[in-house]
Design a protein around this nucleic acid. Structure first.
Lengths: 306, 306
DNA sequence: CGAATTCTCTGACTAGTATCAGAGAATGGA
DNA sequence: TCCATTCTCTGATACTAGTCAGAGAATTCG
């Protein structure tokens, strides 16, 4: 298994990586091409560029000046915050970027060229699958304060989706509360899933003294579905509930959320009688957590993985 | 399709490529780590190192001296040819290489770690498929003189395989001849398929004035099977036969070569009565080539691919 | 044998990719 | 308002990667 991953890594980085570098670097240094590309057609703040390409500020500054000298880029102060500067492509810069785009297309085409139609289809399918799974592996799940901007984004998106999908819409004030202070230790917990430091999902716990721990706010961004993220969030929540002493977790949900319901069932949740009077709920589920419940790491990861 | 390939390329080179570099480069330059790695446990001639890593001879020499100074490598003259020098890892070098090996394993493991078992299996499957197809795309087919070392390697391997697989063994002198001069223009043609400049397959044509062109010496190395290479060789041979004016190609084969027989059938070959007295043949096939037959390139490649 | 070729090494040189410290302007909070 | 912080830029500096020309030894070929 490891050997297969390594063979794949070696082949792809050699075949694709090296080619990409040579394709992208025209007569200009690779670093400049990367910056030119990353600025994009809409322009980009320098700080965003720095963090995306992981560049030193002095280095980026120099690269930009070189691109300015070639008349490919304009750097203008940001109106809102005059410390910040925004890089934009000139007409020549846009043309150059389009050219890189074309090269990248040609590189991709050259990978497919020697194959027949059936092989191409199989390769595309395999690439799509590998891409999705590698993306899934990039998602990080960590506790976050409910007041954090990313947490707020998730919760707002969650409410918006409920409002869209519930037959009668969704009004948070009518629903059972899960305010910030209730999702913050020691009262509760909020987990946020991030992909490339953008929030793409969340899930929360509300701890109770004698009653089972409640699972709330399970949500996965549409762009991140099909990656098994819901299942990972759920497992992580269960593990943390268990670590907090819970023997049972429970949750309620609406009949419109069909994929969530099937997730709960397949994750070992059993439907039970209503245990609260949540007006938006149609189904109530409960799960017994295993005794000697494993910590959060043990539910994923391979043995010996650091 | 192109977009999918590009997304895949971007993700994999970023996720795998960048990580590989940082994993492999310990405190030493990446170039040195690569050389250390490539020398391998068995040692390696400098010329082989140079060609495999595509390095300038001066550059490699400097890198090796730096590794020698760190006591990781010994460079000794080759006994057989004193111009050639052989690099070998010292005990410390072997330890260092084992360390890189471990890091590479850990990198591979870290890619799998966040996934559950089912996802891992799917990822491995997708990687294997992508690897095979990308490898297939690396294979180059070109005419080669029958006396060339690579051509001889293929022909010897072909005979050895026939001898192994035919019930009564195989003696080339009893078979209809296809000597070097018969497979060299204008009498004939030999195509050799190469993967990373190693020969992995061949196929030949014998042209005749009034009779159909004969296909001979179709062989694919065991390590390169399942890549669609036989089909590509066959298509290329047909295209070149057509370019030489042939309307019909034909060939004979032995009943032991089941995969070849099924290839011929699926490629549009029809079984015909024996058209020669080849003692090792059990089946004779023939195919009408399309009129206005396309040149070799048109049978593969996508429109507009350079 | 002599000439051409192969292989490696050395020295000189260049471009690219950084890193670090600090300056100067702008901002935000106490 | 003052102070700490943020953002960008400049200069100094270092190292890696890679190229080129040529020398010297060994080998091969005619």
């Amino acid at each position: 298994m490891i050997a297969q991953v390594r063979r794949f890594n070696r082949l792809v980085t050699q075949r694709v990586g090296a080619l990409t570098d040579h394709f992208l670097a025209r007569d200009r240094p690779l670093g400049e091409s990367r910056v030119l590309w990353e600025i994009g057609t809409a322009g980009c703040d320098l700080r965003a560029l720095r963090s995306r390409l992981d560049l030193d500020s002095g280095y980026l500054s120099r690269v930009l000046r070189s691109l300015e000298a070639a008349d490919l880029v304009m750097v203008t102060p940001n109106a809102a915050d005059k410390r910040v500067r925004t890089a934009r492509l000139t007409a020549a810069g846009l043309a150059e970027r389009a050219l890189l785009d074309g090269r990248s297309d040609r590189l991709a085409t050259s990978l497919l060229a020697p194959l027949d139609d059936g092989q191409r289809r199989r390769l595309i399918t395999a690439m799509r699958e590998a891409e999705r799974l590698l993306t899934a592996a990039l998602v990080k799940i960590a506790p976050l304060d409910p007041a954090h901007a990313h947490a707020q984004h998730c919760l707002r998106a969650y409410f918006a989706e409920l409002d869209r999908r519930f037959a009668a819409g969704f009004d948070p004030t009518r629903s059972i509360s899960a305010e910030a202070h209730e999702l913050r230790p020691p009262a509760g917990l909020l987990l946020v899933a991030s992909l490339r430091s953008e929030p793409v999902g969340c899930g929360a716990l509300k701890f109770h003294h004698d009653e089972p721990t409640e699972i709330k706010r399970m949500w996965v961004d549409e762009t991140a579905r099909g990656l098994g993220l819901g299942r990972r969030l759920l497992a992580e929540l269960e593990a943390r509930a268990a670590a907090n002493g819970a023997r049972v977790v429970r949750l309620e949900t609406n009949r419109a959320l069909v994929e969530a319901i099937s997730l709960y069932r397949s994750a070992g949740y059993a439907e039970v009688a209503a245990f609260n009077d949540e007006p938006y709920a149609d189904h109530w589920f409960e799960k017994q957590l295993a005794r000697g419940a494993p910590g959060p790491r043990a539910t994923r990861g391979m043995k010996g993985v650091p």
